Computed example of a mutant assay.
Amino acid sequence: MNLALRLRPFVLPALLLILWQLAAMQAAPADRMPVPADVLATGWTLIASGELPLALLQSLQRVMLGFATSAALALVLGTAMAAYRPVGRNLDPIIESFRPIAPIALLPLAILWFGTGTPAAAFIVGYAAFFPMIVNTIHGVRSIDPGLIRAARTLGVGRLTILRTVVLPGALPNLFVGARLALGVAWTSIIAAELAVGAKAGGGASGGIGQMMFVFYAYSVDLSGIIVCMIGVGVVALLIDRGVRALEYWMIPWKR
């Protein structure tokens, strides 16, 4: 019974692979539908050569740079907007005006301001990650029980101490929700940013996973390589999400 439960998550992927293989065998022309065996061989070649890990690592570095910058800014602004009504009234219209603008729409400005390197890609990523973080920060701070803050003030606790010991711990669940959403959006945005910006910074031979996908599409028409890149993007996204969940489990023991 335990073995069956452990194998259950692999049943659907196995069925999808079988359907993929059957569809590829019936497709015409055959070169428009890569078969799983070709994808596996291409993936092994890219991993063995180090090209795929290098591309994913460089994209991940840009994502972490943009996310860290936007998360720090969102934490400060979101806390101020939630704790002080005048700040919220003045900043909320500006933030809500920019939030519907897609990150890809800022690519021309990013290229003009930062060139075609890592800063431009990180700027796009940071813009995409900023709004999920600040919205969840505001909600997290405002959802704290006011009685806890009043109790701390009654005991003579200062504002900074209340912020550190009451407000931030109470808002942590929402902050982690915002972090998961922001990292997902950021990882999605890096593909478009690298495709359009053509980021070639970072000291390596690759411009990131988005640039690798563009090369496979524009120069070699390697569909198997594109599928491998897509699988790599999905695997990294899953690992990022699991890492955030593990950190949340460790930092918020009262949610267990």
Rank of each mutant, 00 (worst) to 15 (best):
G234C: 09
T154C: 13
L223N: 13
L172S: 08
S220T: 13
I227Q: 01
A218C: 01
G156R: 15
A151G: 09
G184W: 12
V167G: 06
V215T: 11
A193E: 07
T188D: 07
L183D: 04
R150V: 06
G243E: 04
Q211R: 11
G178Q: 02
F216G: 02
P169Y: 06
V233M: 10
G210Y: 09
F176E: 03
Y217E: 07
G198A: 07
A186C: 09
S224W: 04
M230G: 15
I231M: 09
C229K: 10
L160E: 10
L175Q: 03
L163A: 15
Y217P: 00
A205L: 15
V167Y: 12
G203K: 10
V235K: 05
G243F: 05
L238P: 00
T188I: 14
L238T: 03
I209L: 08
G225N: 03
A205V: 11
I162F: 07
E194H: 03
I191T: 13
Y217L: 14
L168W: 15
G158R: 11
L155Y: 12
I226K: 10
F216H: 09
G234N: 04
G147N: 11
G203E: 04
V244M: 01
A152R: 08
L223Q: 10
Q211N: 13
A193I: 03
A199R: 08
V235H: 09
A179Q: 00
G158K: 10
G203I: 04
M212E: 09
M213C: 02
F214K: 08
G156H: 14
F176V: 02
P169C: 05
L148T: 00
G243C: 02
A179D: 00
L172C: 08
A186E: 08
C229H: 12
L195C: 03
G184F: 11
F216L: 01
M212V: 00
A205S: 14
A182D: 06
A201H: 08
F214L: 14
L183T: 10
G170A: 01
K200S: 14
Q211I: 14
I162H: 11
A237G: 15
R242Q: 12
L181V: 10
Q211P: 00
G203N: 09
G232I: 01
I227M: 14
A182G: 06
R245E: 15
V197G: 05
P146T: 05
A201V: 08
I162M: 11
S189Y: 01
